[in-house]
Amino acid sequence: MAQHRTRLVVDFCVRALCLLATLLALLPLVSVLGYVVVRGAGGLSWAFLTELPKPLGEAGGGMANAIQGTLRLVLIAALLAIPAGVLSGVYLAEFKHTRFAKLARFCADVMSGIPSITVGLFVYGLVVTATRHFSALAGGLSLGFLMLPSVARTTEEFVKLVPESLREAALGLGASAWRTTLWVLLRTAAPGIAVGIMLAVARVAGETAPLLFTAFNNRFWSESVNEPTASLPVAIYTYAVSPYDEWHRQAWAAALVLILVVLLLNLSARLVVGRKVRL
């Protein structure tokens, strides 16, 4: 009886601790979101989303070019990193015991630990010095480099999660190896891979450091991917460190827009791929 009581007490305490820890973990998330909404909502307007920045001293203006820039950079990064990342992830999962796969996996892990500014520096040396100008392409490339390891590793993990029985089912039906991989393994793992891609996109959409000396900045529309381009993170940085109150207000609004853009991308991807397909 006494033992029973002790167990109940311990159970209650552990449960309470878990709940407390969860609340603590949620606190920063909620407060960051809440603070950005409170500070940023005031600066948000149709003009902010559709107009170019006004010259210093003039009120109003917007950050349409930075929104366009961020979308363009993320698109370039995704185009580069998703095919390469997904395919190498499949390779890592399908040939997991080969020496090359082990090496590649190790490299991917090291690569995902590299500080993003180093990647920016690398692309600066590789592209910007060679072409002699900043460009959206260089910025997208550096973001792509950052996405690549995480896309590859999450793809690998989710492909590995597909039960062996499904591979056997496909092979037993006379499917060739590549059809089995494409139609059974990748298709079954698709929702997980999509979530992994979204997390990677969300991460790089907010990257500032690698863009500073690759995509640089631009107060106007950038006409092509060969030109320097504005982006939300760099714009937030530039506006936030300035001494002007109007710019501070706009930096908050831009932060809110950035969060909304990531959220929107995330939700739409989930809607497209996440239709109650389970592993």
Binding site: L166, G174, T188
Partner: peptide
């Protein structure tokens, strides 16, 4: 091999319909 498996079908221990 692919032709062999098409002529000689297999049913496994655990039912394994494709979940997708």
């Amino acid at each position: 091999v692919v032709r062999v498996r098409r002529r000689v079908g297999m049913v496994f221990q655990k039912p394994n319909p494709f979940p997708t």
